[in-house]
């Protein structure tokens, strides 16, 4: 009797300790961004102050500087735009490709699927040199379109592979039934397969959009003027003047760039996990 109670207590202690330690470790930088964003510069750089609290009144000065005197809002816009275009391109190509491969009978569907997936493994660092040639040839250097053209080369293979798993889990009888009921194969695809695979498609959307917002190397390589930059490169590169770091504004920028995506993610996380499990376990 005592054994069960003691065990439960031990488990509970373990549970909350792990949770507390990891939550603090993982979320601390964001708390730090938050508090730094609103601290007066004098407060920030005074080592005698307790850095965890406001020793002087909070200020909006860093935020004002960020919005008025940098291209931060422009970068946010650029990132959102590039993200949406890449998502659109990816869906347009990966959905039909995955469907075709999933329904391709025999071993070839699977083999081509593997081949497509393998291209995803080719690392960006191998590619930025040849890709920079292509970007130059397309006359896209130093435009947002340089990254928009490049990203689908990673997002499409991965998305195709993920969606293939999804489409394979839908029994072909479903489409047969729809076709017997008078739909064409294309209509069956649009009206049955797509709605059923919605969580898979959502997974692809989230995955693709994150990849664009996360992207660093390509934007850094292909885009040189500040006004065409994405937020992931703009903030760490252009908000640092020489050796001077505007920590307050930097942290405000970090926070603003992270939180909306985080909230969005949390809303869709369960579907995202479902998408991943269907694609990868069965």
């Amino acid at each position: 009797m005592a054994g069960v109670r003691a065990r439960q207590l031990a488990f509970r202690t373990f549970h909350w300790t792990v949770l507390a330690v990891f939550s603090v470790l993982l979320a601390f930088p964001f708390y730090w961004m938050l508090i730094t964003s609103f601290k007066r510069t004098g407060d920030l750089y005074d080592l005698r102050n307790n850095p965890f609290v406001f020793n002087q009144k909070p200020t909006l000065e860093h935020l004002r500087l960020l919005v008025n005197e940098t291209l931060f809002l422009r970068w946010l816009g650029n990132t959102a735009f590039a993200g949406l275009v890449v998502v659109a391109i990816t869906l347009l190509l990966a959905v039909p490709a995955a469907y075709a491969l999933a329904r391709l009978t025999g071993r070839w569907g699977g083999r081509i699927g593997i081949a497509i997936f393998l291209t995803y493994l080719v690392p960006p660092t191998l590619l930025f040199i040849p890709l920079s040639r292509i970007v130059a040839w397309l006359n896209l250097q130093d435009t947002l379109w340089a990254v928009i053209v490049v990203y689908p080369s990673f997002t499409i293979p991965f998305s195709t592979w993920l969606l293939m798993g999804f489409f394979k889990s839908i029994p072909p009888e479903l489409e047969d039934a729809a076709m017997v009921d008078g739909l064409t194969r294309f209509q069956a695809f649009l009206k049955l397969v797509i709605p059923i695979s919605l969580s898979g498609i959502l997974t692809v959307v989230i995955f693709t959009f994150t990849l664009v917002t996360q992207g660093f190397v390509y934007a850094l390589t292909f885009i040189s003027s500040a006004s065409h930059q994405t937020v992931g490169v703009g903030v760490p590169i252009y908000l640092v003047r020489g050796d001077v770091y505007y920590w307050g504004s930097l942290m405000a920028a970090c926070l603003i760039a992270s939180l909306p995506i985080a909230v969005l993610y949390n809303l869709f996380l369960d579907r995202f996990i479902a998408g991943f499990t269907v694609g990868s376990v069965k």
């Binding site: 930088p29 730090w32 660093f216 992931g232 490169v233 942290m251 992270s258």
Partner: peptide, 21 residues
């Protein structure tokens, strides 16, 4: 939500946070 933050925030931006820490 807290635990997922480091993944969803752009890496470069999270790294800047750490650079300050």
């Amino acid at each position: 939500f807290l635990i997922l933050l480091p993944w969803v925030a752009p890496v470069s931006i999270g790294s800047i946070g750490w650079k300050w820490i």
